[in-house]
């Protein structure tokens, strides 16, 4: 039930922002690895097998720093090597914006939105994504 609700929220997000891909990575149960649990607009199911590397790539850095990250034209201007950005490679994303999903003030998840064309996320679009995380925080950790 919660999964369906989260998936619907992701689909709504794709329309509202707008963008082509949206996914949520979370650490459930507490203390375990962070994995992509939900995705909309995905090209394949690779995301299901990916475990986020702490401090690596867009989502790993969001988890370790607790702050949003914007990539406007992957693989240009990135920190580290392109191979450290698995979700960008798996979903052929060029522009992406990722924000932390908080549990008790700590980043325990990531909401990522992406486009397969070079179209950076404008400030109002970034705000829309951040607003979604507030709604998501209540749902994604409800069964933890």
């Amino acid at each position: 039930m919660e999964n369906q609700m989260i998936l619907q929220m992701l689909h709504d997000l794709l329309v509202d922002v707008p963008c082509e891909f949206g996914a949520i990575a979370i650490q459930i149960p507490k203390g375990s690895d962070v994995k992509w649990k939900h995705a909309a607009g995905n090209l394949n199911d690779k995301y299901k097998r990916i475990t986020l590397r702490y401090g690596k790539g867009i989502a790993g850095r969001v988890i370790s720093t607790g702050t949003p990250i914007h990539l406007d034209r992957f693989p240009d201007n990135i920190i580290g090597r392109d191979l450290e950005y698995p979700i960008m490679l798996a979903e052929k994303l060029i522009s992406a914006y990722a924000v932390p999903i908080l549990l008790n003030g700590s980043a325990k998840g990531v909401l990522l939105v992406g486009r397969r064309v070079k179209k950076p996320f404008q400030l109002h679009e970034q705000k829309a994504v951040r607003d979604y995380t507030t709604k998501l925080e209540k749902v994604v950790f409800s069964h933890d």
Binding site: N44, K46, K48, R49, I50, T51, R53, L89
Partner: peptide
């Protein structure tokens, strides 16, 4: 490799 890139 599989857990990093999701490729079986």
């Amino acid at each position: 490799y599989t857990s990093t890139y999701g490729i079986i």
